[in-house]
Simulated scan of single mutants.
Amino acid sequence: MDIQPFHINISQSALDDLRHRLSRTRWLTPVTDAGWSEGTDSGFLRRLVDYWQHHFDWRAQETRLNALPQFKTRVADQEIHFVHQRGTGPAPLPLVLTHGWPGSFLEMEAIIPLLADPGSHGGDARDAFHVVVPSLPGYGFSTAPAVKGTGSYEVAGLWAGLMTNLGYERFGAQGGDIGAGVSSWLACRYPERMAGLHLNFIPGSYRPYLGEDQPAVSEEERQFQDRVAAWADQQGAYGRLQGTKPQSLAFGLNDSPAGLAAWIAEKFQAWSDCGGEIEHAVSLDALLTHISLYWFTQTIGSSFRMYVEGRARPMQLQQGQRILPPLGVAQFPAELPMPPRSWVERGYNVRRWTVMPRGGHFAAMEQPRALAEDIRAFFRPLRESASQR
């Protein structure tokens, strides 16, 4: 397999074009005191765009990111960008981390060293991982599929191929958001290769088998279904649009950096544990690095494909079907609606369930140390069985 080192190098002309477009933003006149209730707050967006145009230093972010060991390769005719940080310890366990939307591989930047070299960060070197962080197809520097049909199920196959080509036959998986779906499909499709599965979100399309031979839905589970329905009514319009008519939206966001910033910033404000203020969870520099990655790679439209494909192939388990590898769950308080443990146990082999004190949907960015420690603790008893395979 041909694996090539990769370094980020955005052209100066692209940087100049971005600043020019930002300077020509056509601003809306919102209703008074709308705040964040109907989308991104106008005052925040003006401040964000001003910072992006006049103060944000992409070159500094680029230099820092290029310290990560990045590569590109082809798996089943798909070009994949990935970070591959080898672990420092006596027997590192391979672990593939998968991001979601509106994230990218950048979500994992802070947690990579905590997992790859725990001994240098207050942990035990015996908990080290060989960390692999691929960019989903059509996100960042992974090329977009040219035809329909690449969703979480198919990405799991790509990741299995990538891990094989890196020499990792037995490995663990971790993810949230779309990454939780990819990781779950990995465990479902390749149980014999999985040492364990750790999630900080349960895939939204997950539905256990609920036939007559199964326990009736409990009151707690029914309340969860009601919460999901209420959340979808109040906050789910983005997913419906991205999963049904994504292209019309993508044309506008691909052409307007201010529009792109508004669309992505809304989700960071709504889904992070920030108390309504984004900067309580992530810095403007971190937020704009994510947004800039989408802008420079022109991948906002291709990122929506995962929503289209997810609707076409949801994770609905059939009679007798279970996800067999051990599962650990880190439940963060500001996460999107999470099911009770009983709902997850209907389809997964739950071994660990940790209620975290702080954090939201972007857990690896918001609370990297807490998430890393839960991942290490979950996999600790699974390492011996993994090494014996």
Score class of each variant (00 low, 15 high):
163 M>N: 01
302 S>N: 09
35 G>F: 13
101 W>G: 04
190 Y>K: 02
9 N>F: 02
278 I>K: 06
373 E>Q: 14
153 Y>K: 10
125 A>T: 12
207 R>Y: 03
235 Q>F: 12
266 E>T: 11
70 Q>T: 05
329 V>N: 04
20 H>R: 11
125 A>Y: 08
106 L>D: 01
107 E>T: 11
307 Y>R: 11
27 W>S: 00
143 T>W: 03
251 F>A: 00
286 A>L: 12
386 A>P: 03
197 L>N: 07
368 P>I: 09
102 P>Q: 10
171 F>A: 06
337 P>I: 14
79 E>H: 07
284 L>C: 02
344 V>W: 05
203 P>R: 12
32 T>Q: 13
385 S>L: 04
209 Y>S: 05
378 F>L: 03
320 G>D: 05
363 A>S: 14
151 G>N: 10
33 D>H: 14
379 F>E: 08
118 P>N: 13
218 S>F: 09
283 S>L: 09
300 I>L: 13
111 I>C: 00
237 A>K: 10
132 V>A: 10
349 N>S: 13
167 G>S: 09
109 E>W: 04
7 H>S: 13
379 F>W: 12
155 V>C: 00
157 G>V: 07
203 P>L: 12
357 P>W: 12
167 G>D: 08
305 R>Q: 15
112 I>H: 06
206 Y>G: 01
205 S>L: 10
314 P>K: 12
57 D>M: 06
101 W>Q: 06
131 V>D: 03
224 F>C: 08
245 K>C: 10
59 R>W: 02
245 K>M: 05
347 G>I: 11
239 G>W: 07
239 G>F: 12
366 E>W: 10
145 P>Q: 07
135 S>K: 04
193 R>G: 01
221 E>N: 13
288 L>I: 09
186 L>M: 15
178 I>Y: 13
330 A>C: 13
213 D>P: 02
224 F>T: 11
370 A>L: 15
267 K>G: 01
380 R>T: 08
148 K>S: 13
265 A>Y: 05
262 A>V: 11
140 G>T: 02
166 L>H: 04
61 Q>T: 06
3 I>H: 14
219 E>R: 07
91 A>Q: 14
281 A>I: 04
49 V>N: 06
276 G>N: 04
344 V>A: 10
182 V>E: 03
203 P>C: 10
170 R>F: 01
281 A>P: 02
32 T>A: 13
108 M>F: 15
101 W>I: 06
307 Y>E: 11
190 Y>C: 03
166 L>P: 02
174 Q>F: 14
111 I>P: 00
9 N>Y: 03
126 R>A: 15
300 I>K: 10
72 K>T: 14
203 P>Q: 11
76 A>T: 05
280 H>M: 04
62 E>S: 11
